[in-house]
Amino acid sequence: MSYRVVHYINQFFANIGGEEMAHVEPELRDGFVGPGMALNNVWKGEAEIVKTVVCGDSYFAEHEAAAKEKILGWVKEIKPDFFIAGPAFNAGRYGYACSTIACAVQDELGIPVLTGMYEENPGADLKNKILIVATSNSAAGMRKAAPTMAALALKIMKGEKIGASCQEGYMPNGIRKNFFEKEIGAKRAVDMLVNKLNDKPFTTEYPMPSFDRVAPNPALKDLSKATIALCTSGGIVPKGNPDHIESSSASHYGEYDITGVDDLTPDKYETAHGGYDPVYANEDPDRVLPVDVMREFEREGKIGKLHNKFYTTVGNGTAVASAKAFACEYAQKLREAGVHAVIMTST
C-alpha cells in the first residue's frame, strides 16, 4: 500500500497560463499534474499523488479565506497521508500561497506537510512553523528541488527520524539538531577562517541570535517600605535537594519558605549547581543567597521586609527558553504576593 499525497501547485505549473491566468479559482484534479510527476518518480510507488489542487496565485492572495476554506474542505475529505506544496522557487505570491495553505493543513487538519522555495521568498517567513525545503531562485532548480522534497516527504510519511537542516535540505527552522559532520570541528574552523581571510564565502554553523536584553525597572524610591525577595540561579536549596533540581539543564525551579530563617547554615542548605566550585557556597550558602544580610537590613529598617519565600534554580546548562519560562511563572507569584523588588543572584 502506498502513502496517499495531495499536491498543491499554481496555474503556471498546471500549464493554464502565466500572470494573465493568475485569477483562476481553485480546482481539484485527479492524480499528478506537472511537477507532481517528478515527485512520483522518486517515490517509485511507495507514495503517490492522488489529487492535485491547482489555484491561481492572484486568486489565493486576493481571496485567501475563501481559497483556504475550499482547499481545506477537499483535503479533509480526501484524508491524505501527506500534503506537499510547490516548489515555488522565487515566485512571491506562489510561495506565500504554498506556505499559508500548508500551514493551515498542518494546523487545522493535523496532516504532515512540506513545501519548497527560495530562501528570500516571502513565503519562507513561515519556516519556523512548517518544513520548507530551500531551492534555487528559478524553476531551473526543479531537477534538484523535486528529489530533495520527495525524499524528505517520504521520510516524514514513514515516521523516520529527520536529520539536521543541512542534511535534509530544509531551511533552518529554529530547532537545533545534532548530526555528525565529515570533518572534525577544528578542521572545519581552519577552513572557515581561511575562507574568511581570503574574502571567500563561508557559512557559520550557528548564526548569532538576537539577544534578549531586559532594561531594569526604575529604582525604588523608598526601600524602608519595600518587600524584597531573593531569587537565584546559583542553585541554593534545602539540604538534600528535596525537589531534585538538576545540577545542569534544570527542568524546574524550587520555591522555599524562609519564614524565621535568619541565616542559611550548611547543615540546612546547600547548592545543587554543578557549574561552579561548590565548596564556598556549601560552607556558607548566604554567599549565594544573602539571607543573613537581608535580615540585618530588615532589623535596621533599611528594607521593609524580606519576602518569606525564595525562588531558586540552576543556571548551569539550562536553556534560555527554560529559564525564561520559570521566571515568567514565579514573577507572577511574586507580584501576587505584593513583592516590590527582587535581588537576583547568579554564579
Binding site: 537545533r176 572545519r188 574568511k196 550557528y206 548569532m208 539577544f211 546548562g317 536553556a319
Partner: peptide, 28 residues
C-alpha cells in the same frame, strides 16, 4: 572563527549561547 557548543534545550528550540554578538559571524 570560534568553536563552541550549544545548550539549545532538549527540544533544540532555545537560544544556544548565553551571550552573543554579531561580530561572531564565523562559528563552528
Amino acid at each position: 572563527t570560534i568553536i563552541t557548543d550549544e545548550y539549545a534545550g532538549q527540544d533544540g528550540k532555545s537560544q544556544s549561547l548565553a551571550d552573543a554578538d554579531p561580530l561572531a559571524d564565523a562559528v563552528v
